[in-house]
Design a protein around this nucleic acid. Structure first.
Lengths: 246, 246
DNA sequence: CGAACCCTTGACAGAAATCAACTAAGGTGG
DNA sequence: CCACCTTAGTTGATTTCTGTCAAGGGTTCG
Protein backbone atom coordinates (compact mmCIF):
# COMPACT_ATOMS: atom_id res chain seq x y z
CA UNK A 1 0.00 0.00 0.00
CA UNK A 2 1.58 3.23 -1.12
CA UNK A 3 1.01 6.46 0.72
CA UNK A 4 0.14 8.28 -2.49
CA UNK A 5 -2.83 5.98 -3.09
CA UNK A 6 -4.54 7.13 0.08
CA UNK A 7 -5.70 10.66 -0.76
CA UNK A 8 -7.60 9.51 -3.85
CA UNK A 9 -9.36 6.84 -1.85
CA UNK A 10 -10.08 9.13 1.04
CA UNK A 11 -11.80 11.55 -1.31
CA UNK A 12 -14.22 8.97 -2.61
CA UNK A 13 -17.78 9.61 -1.43
CA UNK A 14 -17.67 6.20 0.17
CA UNK A 15 -14.74 7.06 2.43
CA UNK A 16 -14.68 10.80 2.72
CA UNK A 17 -17.00 11.14 5.69
CA UNK A 18 -15.78 8.37 7.93
CA UNK A 19 -13.67 8.95 10.99
CA UNK A 20 -9.97 9.18 10.34
CA UNK A 21 -9.14 6.45 12.83
CA UNK A 22 -11.51 4.06 11.13
CA UNK A 23 -10.20 4.95 7.71
CA UNK A 24 -6.66 4.30 8.80
CA UNK A 25 -7.58 1.01 10.41
CA UNK A 26 -9.41 -0.05 7.28
CA UNK A 27 -6.49 0.85 5.05
CA UNK A 28 -4.14 -0.94 7.38
CA UNK A 29 -5.78 -4.23 6.55
CA UNK A 30 -5.71 -3.69 2.79
CA UNK A 31 -3.66 -5.35 0.14
CA UNK A 32 -2.43 -3.46 -2.89
CA UNK A 33 -1.47 -5.13 -6.10
CA UNK A 34 -0.47 -4.27 -9.62
CA UNK A 35 -1.95 -6.42 -12.34
CA UNK A 36 -1.14 -6.72 -16.02
CA UNK A 37 -3.80 -6.12 -18.66
CA UNK A 38 -6.27 -8.87 -19.32
CA UNK A 39 -6.20 -10.45 -15.90
CA UNK A 40 -9.31 -11.73 -14.22
CA UNK A 41 -9.60 -10.10 -10.80
CA UNK A 42 -12.91 -11.52 -9.75
CA UNK A 43 -14.86 -14.49 -10.97
CA UNK A 44 -18.64 -14.39 -10.74
CA UNK A 45 -19.86 -16.95 -8.23
CA UNK A 46 -16.82 -16.62 -5.99
CA UNK A 47 -17.41 -15.65 -2.38
CA UNK A 48 -17.02 -11.92 -1.94
CA UNK A 49 -13.97 -11.52 0.24
CA UNK A 50 -12.75 -8.11 -0.84
CA UNK A 51 -14.04 -4.75 -1.84
CA UNK A 52 -11.92 -3.65 -4.80
CA UNK A 53 -10.67 -0.15 -5.43
CA UNK A 54 -9.14 0.81 -8.77
CA UNK A 55 -6.46 3.41 -8.21
CA UNK A 56 -4.77 3.09 -11.61
CA UNK A 57 -5.72 1.48 -14.89
CA UNK A 58 -9.02 0.33 -16.30
CA UNK A 59 -11.33 -2.46 -15.18
CA UNK A 60 -14.23 -4.16 -16.90
CA UNK A 61 -17.16 -5.64 -15.04
CA UNK A 62 -18.78 -8.38 -17.04
CA UNK A 63 -21.11 -11.32 -16.71
CA UNK A 64 -21.38 -14.58 -18.52
CA UNK A 65 -23.91 -17.32 -18.90
CA UNK A 66 -24.11 -20.34 -21.14
CA UNK A 67 -20.96 -19.37 -23.00
CA UNK A 68 -22.18 -15.85 -23.72
CA UNK A 69 -20.62 -12.82 -22.14
CA UNK A 70 -21.55 -9.19 -21.70
CA UNK A 71 -19.99 -6.04 -20.33
CA UNK A 72 -21.85 -4.68 -17.34
CA UNK A 73 -19.70 -1.63 -16.69
CA UNK A 74 -16.26 -0.14 -16.97
CA UNK A 75 -14.38 1.55 -14.16
CA UNK A 76 -11.66 4.13 -14.11
CA UNK A 77 -9.69 5.39 -11.12
CA UNK A 78 -10.63 6.12 -8.50
CA UNK A 79 -13.57 3.81 -8.12
CA UNK A 80 -14.80 0.90 -6.07
CA UNK A 81 -16.64 -2.18 -7.18
CA UNK A 82 -18.66 -5.11 -5.87
CA UNK A 83 -19.56 -3.41 -2.64
CA UNK A 84 -22.99 -5.05 -2.55
CA UNK A 85 -21.67 -8.61 -2.64
CA UNK A 86 -19.21 -7.83 0.15
CA UNK A 87 -21.93 -6.43 2.34
CA UNK A 88 -24.28 -9.32 1.79
CA UNK A 89 -21.44 -11.78 2.15
CA UNK A 90 -22.81 -13.32 -1.01
CA UNK A 91 -21.24 -14.58 -4.23
CA UNK A 92 -20.20 -12.01 -6.78
CA UNK A 93 -22.79 -11.60 -9.53
CA UNK A 94 -20.25 -10.13 -11.93
CA UNK A 95 -16.71 -10.90 -12.92
CA UNK A 96 -14.01 -8.27 -13.26
CA UNK A 97 -10.89 -8.10 -15.37
CA UNK A 98 -8.23 -5.52 -16.08
CA UNK A 99 -8.31 -3.95 -19.53
CA UNK A 100 -5.06 -2.14 -18.89
CA UNK A 101 -2.24 -2.58 -16.45
CA UNK A 102 -3.97 -1.65 -13.20
CA UNK A 103 -3.35 -1.04 -9.57
CA UNK A 104 -6.01 -2.43 -7.27
CA UNK A 105 -6.55 -2.07 -3.54
CA UNK A 106 -8.27 -4.96 -1.82
CA UNK A 107 -10.27 -4.21 1.32
CA UNK A 108 -11.30 -7.27 3.33
CA UNK A 109 -15.07 -7.53 3.34
CA UNK A 110 -15.18 -8.50 6.98
CA UNK A 111 -13.31 -5.32 7.97
CA UNK A 112 -15.78 -3.37 5.91
CA UNK A 113 -18.78 -4.89 7.60
CA UNK A 114 -17.25 -4.36 11.01
CA UNK A 115 -16.48 -0.74 10.25
CA UNK A 116 -19.89 0.43 9.17
CA UNK A 117 -21.31 -1.05 12.34
CA UNK A 118 -19.01 1.17 14.36
CA UNK A 119 -19.00 4.32 12.29
CA UNK A 120 -22.42 5.84 11.58
CA UNK A 121 -21.03 8.29 9.05
CA UNK A 122 -19.49 5.45 7.12
CA UNK A 123 -22.78 3.57 7.28
CA UNK A 124 -24.49 6.57 5.73
CA UNK A 125 -21.86 6.68 3.00
CA UNK A 126 -22.37 3.00 2.27
CA UNK A 127 -26.10 3.58 2.11
CA UNK A 128 -25.64 6.41 -0.36
CA UNK A 129 -23.24 4.43 -2.46
CA UNK A 130 -25.53 1.41 -2.67
CA UNK A 131 -28.55 3.55 -3.43
CA UNK A 132 -26.59 5.16 -6.24
CA UNK A 133 -25.48 1.80 -7.60
CA UNK A 134 -29.03 0.56 -7.55
CA UNK A 135 -30.24 3.60 -9.42
CA UNK A 136 -27.48 3.23 -11.99
CA UNK A 137 -28.58 -0.31 -12.66
CA UNK A 138 -32.24 0.70 -12.90
CA UNK A 139 -31.24 3.22 -15.52
CA UNK A 140 -29.34 0.58 -17.39
CA UNK A 141 -32.32 -1.78 -17.39
CA UNK A 142 -34.55 1.06 -18.54
CA UNK A 143 -32.43 1.94 -21.53
CA UNK A 144 -32.23 -1.73 -22.48
CA UNK A 145 -35.97 -2.24 -22.31
CA UNK A 146 -37.30 1.07 -23.57
CA UNK A 147 -34.90 2.03 -26.33
CA UNK A 148 -33.81 0.26 -29.45
CA UNK A 149 -30.16 -0.06 -30.31
CA UNK A 150 -29.84 3.13 -32.33
CA UNK A 151 -31.49 5.12 -29.57
CA UNK A 152 -29.24 3.59 -26.93
CA UNK A 153 -26.16 4.40 -28.94
CA UNK A 154 -27.23 7.95 -29.65
CA UNK A 155 -28.10 8.55 -26.01
CA UNK A 156 -24.81 7.14 -24.82
CA UNK A 157 -22.73 9.14 -27.28
CA UNK A 158 -24.64 12.27 -26.37
CA UNK A 159 -24.05 11.70 -22.68
CA UNK A 160 -20.36 11.19 -23.32
CA UNK A 161 -20.29 14.52 -25.13
CA UNK A 162 -21.61 16.10 -21.93
CA UNK A 163 -18.94 14.36 -19.92
CA UNK A 164 -16.25 15.43 -22.35
CA UNK A 165 -17.69 18.92 -22.46
CA UNK A 166 -17.29 19.08 -26.22
CA UNK A 167 -19.23 18.08 -29.28
CA UNK A 168 -16.24 16.18 -30.57
CA UNK A 169 -14.33 13.68 -28.49
CA UNK A 170 -12.51 10.37 -28.47
CA UNK A 171 -14.32 7.20 -27.48
CA UNK A 172 -12.99 6.29 -24.05
CA UNK A 173 -13.37 2.54 -24.59
CA UNK A 174 -13.07 0.08 -27.44
CA UNK A 175 -16.15 -0.28 -29.55
CA UNK A 176 -16.63 -3.93 -28.77
CA UNK A 177 -17.05 -3.13 -25.08
CA UNK A 178 -19.45 -0.36 -25.86
CA UNK A 179 -21.45 -2.73 -28.05
CA UNK A 180 -21.58 -5.33 -25.31
CA UNK A 181 -22.45 -2.77 -22.66
CA UNK A 182 -25.31 -1.51 -24.79
CA UNK A 183 -26.52 -5.04 -25.44
CA UNK A 184 -25.62 -5.66 -29.04
CA UNK A 185 -22.95 -7.25 -31.21
CA UNK A 186 -19.93 -5.35 -32.54
CA UNK A 187 -21.20 -5.83 -36.08
CA UNK A 188 -24.51 -4.33 -35.14
CA UNK A 189 -22.85 -1.36 -33.48
CA UNK A 190 -20.64 -0.81 -36.47
CA UNK A 191 -23.56 -0.71 -38.85
CA UNK A 192 -25.66 1.41 -36.53
CA UNK A 193 -22.88 3.98 -36.18
CA UNK A 194 -22.72 4.37 -39.90
CA UNK A 195 -26.45 4.82 -40.15
CA UNK A 196 -26.36 7.45 -37.40
CA UNK A 197 -24.58 9.82 -39.74
CA UNK A 198 -28.06 10.67 -41.03
CA UNK A 199 -29.05 11.58 -37.46
CA UNK A 200 -26.29 14.06 -36.77
CA UNK A 201 -23.55 11.79 -35.46
CA UNK A 202 -20.30 11.13 -37.25
CA UNK A 203 -17.92 8.50 -35.97
CA UNK A 204 -14.54 8.07 -37.59
CA UNK A 205 -12.39 5.54 -35.84
CA UNK A 206 -12.50 6.49 -32.19
CA UNK A 207 -13.45 10.11 -32.92
CA UNK A 208 -17.07 11.04 -32.32
CA UNK A 209 -18.47 14.28 -33.67
CA UNK A 210 -21.93 15.61 -33.11
CA UNK A 211 -22.69 17.30 -36.40
CA UNK A 212 -26.31 18.16 -35.65
CA UNK A 213 -27.23 18.19 -32.01
CA UNK A 214 -30.93 18.77 -32.63
CA UNK A 215 -31.16 15.67 -34.78
CA UNK A 216 -29.27 13.54 -32.29
CA UNK A 217 -31.49 14.71 -29.47
CA UNK A 218 -34.59 14.03 -31.52
CA UNK A 219 -33.46 10.45 -31.83
CA UNK A 220 -31.96 9.86 -28.38
CA UNK A 221 -34.50 11.88 -26.39
CA UNK A 222 -32.07 12.20 -23.53
CA UNK A 223 -33.84 11.79 -20.22
CA UNK A 224 -32.56 12.60 -16.76
CA UNK A 225 -34.30 9.50 -15.45
CA UNK A 226 -32.28 7.23 -17.73
CA UNK A 227 -29.14 9.02 -18.72
CA UNK A 228 -28.26 10.16 -15.28
CA UNK A 229 -26.42 11.60 -13.64
CA UNK A 230 -26.68 10.33 -10.14
CA UNK A 231 -23.57 12.01 -8.86
CA UNK A 232 -21.44 9.81 -6.65
CA UNK A 233 -22.81 6.72 -8.30
CA UNK A 234 -19.44 5.57 -9.38
CA UNK A 235 -19.29 2.23 -7.68
CA UNK A 236 -20.86 -0.97 -8.86
CA UNK A 237 -21.58 -0.80 -12.50
CA UNK A 238 -21.50 2.66 -13.91
CA UNK A 239 -20.09 2.98 -17.36
CA UNK A 240 -17.60 5.75 -17.33
CA UNK A 241 -19.09 8.36 -15.11
CA UNK A 242 -15.78 10.09 -14.78
CA UNK A 243 -14.39 12.49 -17.30
CA UNK A 244 -13.14 10.75 -20.37
CA UNK A 245 -9.82 11.64 -21.91
CA UNK A 246 -9.86 13.89 -24.96
CA UNK B 1 -52.78 3.50 10.38
CA UNK B 2 -54.29 0.31 11.66
CA UNK B 3 -52.73 -1.66 14.47
CA UNK B 4 -52.98 -4.88 12.50
CA UNK B 5 -50.73 -3.48 9.77
CA UNK B 6 -47.82 -3.14 12.16
CA UNK B 7 -46.71 -6.72 12.78
CA UNK B 8 -46.27 -7.43 9.08
CA UNK B 9 -44.19 -4.31 8.66
CA UNK B 10 -42.18 -4.96 11.78
CA UNK B 11 -41.24 -8.39 10.45
CA UNK B 12 -39.79 -7.04 7.23
CA UNK B 13 -36.01 -7.40 7.09
CA UNK B 14 -35.85 -3.64 6.74
CA UNK B 15 -37.59 -2.98 10.04
CA UNK B 16 -37.14 -6.09 12.13
CA UNK B 17 -33.84 -5.19 13.75
CA UNK B 18 -34.40 -1.55 14.62
CA UNK B 19 -35.10 -0.36 18.12
CA UNK B 20 -38.72 -0.48 19.13
CA UNK B 21 -38.83 3.17 20.09
CA UNK B 22 -37.53 4.18 16.68
CA UNK B 23 -39.95 1.89 14.93
CA UNK B 24 -42.85 3.35 16.82
CA UNK B 25 -41.73 6.88 16.13
CA UNK B 26 -41.36 6.11 12.47
CA UNK B 27 -44.79 4.54 12.26
CA UNK B 28 -46.24 7.48 14.14
CA UNK B 29 -45.39 9.76 11.24
CA UNK B 30 -46.84 7.48 8.59
CA UNK B 31 -49.91 7.83 6.48
CA UNK B 32 -52.00 4.85 5.50
CA UNK B 33 -54.29 4.85 2.53
CA UNK B 34 -56.47 2.49 0.56
CA UNK B 35 -56.38 2.88 -3.17
CA UNK B 36 -58.58 1.46 -5.90
CA UNK B 37 -57.08 -0.63 -8.70
CA UNK B 38 -55.34 1.18 -11.51
CA UNK B 39 -54.26 4.21 -9.56
CA UNK B 40 -50.90 5.82 -10.06
CA UNK B 41 -49.16 6.03 -6.69
CA UNK B 42 -45.86 7.40 -7.81
CA UNK B 43 -44.84 9.19 -10.97
CA UNK B 44 -41.28 8.81 -12.19
CA UNK B 45 -39.46 12.11 -11.94
CA UNK B 46 -41.35 13.24 -8.86
CA UNK B 47 -39.32 14.09 -5.78
CA UNK B 48 -39.11 11.10 -3.47
CA UNK B 49 -41.07 12.15 -0.40
CA UNK B 50 -42.23 8.80 0.88
CA UNK B 51 -41.10 5.26 1.24
CA UNK B 52 -44.05 3.08 0.27
CA UNK B 53 -45.09 -0.13 1.96
CA UNK B 54 -47.66 -2.42 0.38
CA UNK B 55 -49.63 -4.12 3.12
CA UNK B 56 -52.51 -5.31 0.95
CA UNK B 57 -53.07 -5.63 -2.77
CA UNK B 58 -50.70 -5.64 -5.71
CA UNK B 59 -48.45 -2.92 -7.06
CA UNK B 60 -46.62 -2.60 -10.35
CA UNK B 61 -43.38 -0.71 -10.73
CA UNK B 62 -42.94 0.52 -14.26
CA UNK B 63 -40.98 2.97 -16.33
CA UNK B 64 -41.77 4.90 -19.44
CA UNK B 65 -39.88 6.81 -22.04
CA UNK B 66 -40.87 8.31 -25.36
CA UNK B 67 -44.37 6.89 -25.17
CA UNK B 68 -43.15 3.37 -24.45
CA UNK B 69 -43.67 1.69 -21.13
CA UNK B 70 -42.26 -1.34 -19.38
CA UNK B 71 -42.84 -3.25 -16.17
CA UNK B 72 -39.84 -3.16 -13.86
CA UNK B 73 -41.25 -5.28 -11.06
CA UNK B 74 -44.37 -6.33 -9.23
CA UNK B 75 -44.85 -6.23 -5.49
CA UNK B 76 -47.05 -8.18 -3.15
CA UNK B 77 -47.57 -7.61 0.56
CA UNK B 78 -45.64 -7.07 2.60
CA UNK B 79 -43.03 -5.20 0.65
CA UNK B 80 -41.43 -1.80 0.37
CA UNK B 81 -40.48 0.14 -2.70
CA UNK B 82 -38.46 3.12 -3.88
CA UNK B 83 -36.22 3.12 -0.86
CA UNK B 84 -33.20 4.22 -2.88
CA UNK B 85 -34.80 7.40 -4.20
CA UNK B 86 -35.91 8.35 -0.69
CA UNK B 87 -32.44 7.91 0.67
CA UNK B 88 -30.78 9.91 -2.04
CA UNK B 89 -33.51 12.53 -1.88
CA UNK B 90 -33.60 12.18 -5.64
CA UNK B 91 -36.40 11.86 -8.18
CA UNK B 92 -38.08 8.49 -8.53
CA UNK B 93 -36.72 6.54 -11.49
CA UNK B 94 -39.81 4.35 -11.67
CA UNK B 95 -43.52 4.92 -11.45
CA UNK B 96 -45.85 2.77 -9.41
CA UNK B 97 -49.50 1.91 -9.80
CA UNK B 98 -51.96 -0.37 -8.08
CA UNK B 99 -53.04 -3.42 -10.04
CA UNK B 100 -55.60 -4.34 -7.43
CA UNK B 101 -57.29 -2.48 -4.64
CA UNK B 102 -54.37 -1.89 -2.30
CA UNK B 103 -53.48 -0.60 1.09
CA UNK B 104 -50.30 1.45 1.20
CA UNK B 105 -48.35 2.90 4.09
CA UNK B 106 -46.40 6.05 3.37
CA UNK B 107 -43.29 6.73 5.43
CA UNK B 108 -41.89 10.25 5.12
CA UNK B 109 -38.45 10.07 3.55
CA UNK B 110 -37.06 12.68 5.92
CA UNK B 111 -38.06 10.60 8.94
CA UNK B 112 -36.38 7.63 7.31
CA UNK B 113 -33.14 9.48 6.76
CA UNK B 114 -33.18 10.83 10.28
CA UNK B 115 -33.81 7.40 11.74
CA UNK B 116 -30.97 5.50 10.16
CA UNK B 117 -28.61 8.17 11.37
CA UNK B 118 -29.71 7.48 14.93
CA UNK B 119 -30.20 3.74 14.86
CA UNK B 120 -27.17 1.71 13.73
CA UNK B 121 -29.16 -1.49 13.46
CA UNK B 122 -31.60 0.20 11.15
CA UNK B 123 -28.74 1.55 9.09
CA UNK B 124 -27.43 -1.98 8.68
CA UNK B 125 -30.88 -3.14 7.60
CA UNK B 126 -31.07 -0.36 5.04
CA UNK B 127 -27.65 -1.32 3.77
CA UNK B 128 -28.70 -4.93 3.39
CA UNK B 129 -31.92 -3.98 1.70
CA UNK B 130 -30.23 -1.71 -0.81
CA UNK B 131 -27.52 -4.23 -1.53
CA UNK B 132 -30.23 -6.79 -2.21
CA UNK B 133 -32.09 -4.43 -4.49
CA UNK B 134 -28.95 -3.71 -6.41
CA UNK B 135 -28.25 -7.38 -6.87
CA UNK B 136 -31.81 -8.02 -8.00
CA UNK B 137 -31.41 -5.38 -10.67
CA UNK B 138 -28.05 -6.76 -11.78
CA UNK B 139 -29.71 -10.13 -12.21
CA UNK B 140 -32.45 -8.54 -14.24
CA UNK B 141 -29.96 -6.81 -16.53
CA UNK B 142 -28.05 -10.06 -16.90
CA UNK B 143 -31.07 -12.04 -18.00
CA UNK B 144 -31.99 -9.32 -20.46
CA UNK B 145 -28.56 -9.19 -22.01
CA UNK B 146 -27.48 -12.81 -21.91
CA UNK B 147 -30.64 -14.74 -22.67
CA UNK B 148 -33.03 -14.61 -25.58
CA UNK B 149 -36.75 -14.37 -24.99
CA UNK B 150 -37.46 -18.11 -24.89
CA UNK B 151 -34.69 -18.64 -22.39
CA UNK B 152 -35.89 -15.79 -20.20
CA UNK B 153 -39.40 -17.14 -20.17
CA UNK B 154 -38.31 -20.68 -19.41
CA UNK B 155 -36.04 -19.51 -16.61
CA UNK B 156 -38.76 -17.37 -15.08
CA UNK B 157 -41.40 -20.08 -15.24
CA UNK B 158 -38.97 -22.54 -13.74
CA UNK B 159 -38.15 -20.16 -10.92
CA UNK B 160 -41.85 -19.66 -10.23
CA UNK B 161 -42.25 -23.42 -9.97
CA UNK B 162 -39.63 -23.36 -7.20
CA UNK B 163 -41.50 -20.58 -5.47
CA UNK B 164 -44.78 -22.42 -5.79
CA UNK B 165 -43.14 -25.66 -4.71
CA UNK B 166 -44.93 -27.57 -7.44
CA UNK B 167 -44.42 -28.41 -11.07
CA UNK B 168 -47.87 -27.09 -11.86
CA UNK B 169 -49.10 -23.71 -10.70
CA UNK B 170 -51.12 -20.64 -11.61
CA UNK B 171 -49.41 -17.61 -13.09
CA UNK B 172 -49.43 -14.99 -10.35
CA UNK B 173 -49.66 -12.05 -12.76
CA UNK B 174 -51.27 -11.29 -16.08
CA UNK B 175 -49.28 -12.33 -19.10
CA UNK B 176 -48.94 -8.84 -20.47
CA UNK B 177 -47.06 -7.76 -17.35
CA UNK B 178 -44.87 -10.80 -17.53
CA UNK B 179 -44.13 -10.03 -21.16
CA UNK B 180 -43.22 -6.46 -20.35
CA UNK B 181 -41.15 -7.47 -17.34
CA UNK B 182 -39.21 -9.90 -19.50
CA UNK B 183 -38.69 -7.30 -22.19
CA UNK B 184 -40.97 -8.44 -24.98
CA UNK B 185 -44.41 -7.84 -26.45
CA UNK B 186 -47.49 -9.81 -25.40
CA UNK B 187 -47.72 -11.29 -28.88
CA UNK B 188 -44.19 -12.49 -28.67
CA UNK B 189 -44.79 -14.05 -25.26
CA UNK B 190 -47.90 -15.76 -26.49
CA UNK B 191 -46.11 -17.33 -29.42
CA UNK B 192 -43.08 -18.25 -27.37
CA UNK B 193 -45.23 -19.98 -24.77
CA UNK B 194 -46.75 -22.14 -27.42
CA UNK B 195 -43.39 -23.04 -28.84
CA UNK B 196 -42.14 -23.96 -25.37
CA UNK B 197 -44.44 -26.95 -25.38
CA UNK B 198 -41.66 -28.68 -27.30
CA UNK B 199 -39.29 -27.82 -24.45
CA UNK B 200 -41.27 -29.36 -21.64
CA UNK B 201 -43.54 -26.47 -20.66
CA UNK B 202 -47.27 -26.43 -21.14
CA UNK B 203 -49.26 -23.27 -20.50
CA UNK B 204 -53.04 -23.33 -20.66
CA UNK B 205 -54.58 -20.05 -19.71
CA UNK B 206 -52.97 -19.11 -16.42
CA UNK B 207 -51.99 -22.68 -15.59
CA UNK B 208 -48.34 -23.59 -16.06
CA UNK B 209 -47.22 -27.20 -16.07
CA UNK B 210 -43.70 -28.43 -16.33
CA UNK B 211 -44.08 -31.59 -18.37
CA UNK B 212 -40.41 -32.35 -18.77
CA UNK B 213 -38.14 -30.70 -16.25
CA UNK B 214 -34.94 -31.91 -17.89
CA UNK B 215 -35.87 -30.28 -21.18
CA UNK B 216 -36.88 -27.04 -19.54
CA UNK B 217 -33.63 -26.91 -17.62
CA UNK B 218 -31.65 -27.64 -20.76
CA UNK B 219 -33.18 -24.56 -22.32
CA UNK B 220 -33.28 -22.22 -19.33
CA UNK B 221 -29.98 -23.27 -17.77
CA UNK B 222 -31.06 -21.89 -14.42
CA UNK B 223 -28.21 -20.11 -12.72
CA UNK B 224 -27.99 -18.97 -9.12
CA UNK B 225 -26.22 -15.83 -10.27
CA UNK B 226 -29.18 -14.78 -12.40
CA UNK B 227 -32.26 -16.49 -11.09
CA UNK B 228 -31.61 -15.73 -7.48
CA UNK B 229 -32.51 -15.98 -4.82
CA UNK B 230 -31.07 -13.20 -2.79
CA UNK B 231 -33.27 -13.69 0.22
CA UNK B 232 -34.61 -10.48 1.69
CA UNK B 233 -34.29 -8.75 -1.66
CA UNK B 234 -37.92 -7.90 -1.76
CA UNK B 235 -37.72 -4.16 -2.03
CA UNK B 236 -37.08 -2.12 -5.09
CA UNK B 237 -37.81 -4.11 -8.13
CA UNK B 238 -38.07 -7.80 -7.49
CA UNK B 239 -40.66 -9.60 -9.50
CA UNK B 240 -42.71 -11.70 -7.20
CA UNK B 241 -40.28 -12.94 -4.64
CA UNK B 242 -43.05 -13.99 -2.37
CA UNK B 243 -44.94 -17.25 -2.67
CA UNK B 244 -47.45 -17.22 -5.46
CA UNK B 245 -51.00 -18.38 -4.88
CA UNK B 246 -52.22 -21.90 -5.79
C1' DC C 1 7.98 -9.42 -40.77
C1' DG C 2 4.32 -12.01 -39.07
C1' DA C 3 0.64 -12.81 -35.94
C1' DA C 4 -3.02 -11.33 -33.40
C1' DC C 5 -6.71 -8.56 -32.90
C1' DC C 6 -10.15 -4.96 -33.72
C1' DC C 7 -13.13 -3.19 -36.81
C1' DT C 8 -15.78 -3.29 -40.90
C1' DT C 9 -18.60 -5.06 -44.62
C1' DG C 10 -21.57 -8.32 -46.97
C1' DA C 11 -24.88 -12.04 -47.23
C1' DC C 12 -28.00 -14.55 -44.87
C1' DA C 13 -31.00 -16.54 -41.20
C1' DG C 14 -33.47 -15.99 -37.26
C1' DA C 15 -35.78 -13.27 -33.78
C1' DA C 16 -38.85 -9.85 -32.50
C1' DA C 17 -41.98 -5.87 -33.29
C1' DT C 18 -45.90 -4.24 -35.69
C1' DC C 19 -50.45 -4.20 -37.64
C1' DA C 20 -54.74 -6.28 -37.94
C1' DA C 21 -58.33 -9.36 -36.94
C1' DC C 22 -60.55 -12.45 -34.04
C1' DT C 23 -61.83 -15.06 -29.67
C1' DA C 24 -62.89 -15.47 -24.99
C1' DA C 25 -63.80 -13.96 -20.51
C1' DG C 26 -65.47 -10.64 -17.14
C1' DG C 27 -68.18 -6.85 -15.74
C1' DT C 28 -71.96 -3.51 -16.43
C1' DG C 29 -76.31 -1.93 -17.07
C1' DG C 30 -80.66 -2.54 -18.91
C1' DC D 1 -80.88 -12.80 -16.74
C1' DC D 2 -79.13 -11.39 -20.84
C1' DA D 3 -77.11 -8.06 -24.23
C1' DC D 4 -73.40 -5.33 -24.48
C1' DC D 5 -68.95 -3.52 -23.80
C1' DT D 6 -64.31 -3.69 -22.50
C1' DT D 7 -60.13 -5.91 -22.28
C1' DA D 8 -56.68 -9.84 -22.28
C1' DG D 9 -55.10 -13.05 -25.01
C1' DT D 10 -54.31 -15.33 -29.39
C1' DT D 11 -53.24 -15.90 -34.24
C1' DG D 12 -51.71 -14.59 -38.81
C1' DA D 13 -49.17 -11.74 -42.19
C1' DT D 14 -45.60 -8.73 -42.72
C1' DT D 15 -41.72 -5.76 -41.86
C1' DT D 16 -37.91 -4.50 -39.19
C1' DC D 17 -34.30 -5.47 -36.36
C1' DT D 18 -30.61 -8.22 -34.79
C1' DG D 19 -27.41 -12.09 -34.64
C1' DT D 20 -24.49 -15.23 -37.17
C1' DC D 21 -21.12 -16.58 -40.43
C1' DA D 22 -17.54 -15.36 -43.44
C1' DA D 23 -14.08 -12.51 -45.36
C1' DG D 24 -10.99 -8.55 -45.75
C1' DG D 25 -8.55 -4.18 -44.17
C1' DG D 26 -5.93 -1.93 -40.89
C1' DT D 27 -3.23 -1.55 -36.67
C1' DT D 28 -0.32 -2.95 -32.96
C1' DC D 29 2.97 -5.56 -30.88
C1' DG D 30 6.27 -9.03 -30.38
Amino acid sequence: MRAQDLPGIRHLPLFRDMRQAHFEALMQGCYAQNFPAGLELVRQGDPADFLHIVVEGLVELYADWGGRECTMGILRPVGTFILAACIRDAPYLMSARTLERSRIILVPASDLRATFRQDPEFAVSVINDLAGNFRTMVRHAKTLKLRNSRERIAAWLLQQAEVAGASSYQLPIEKRFLASYLGMTPENLSRALKSLEADGLRVEGARVTITDRAKVEALAQPDLLIDGPDPEAEGGAAALPGPSPE
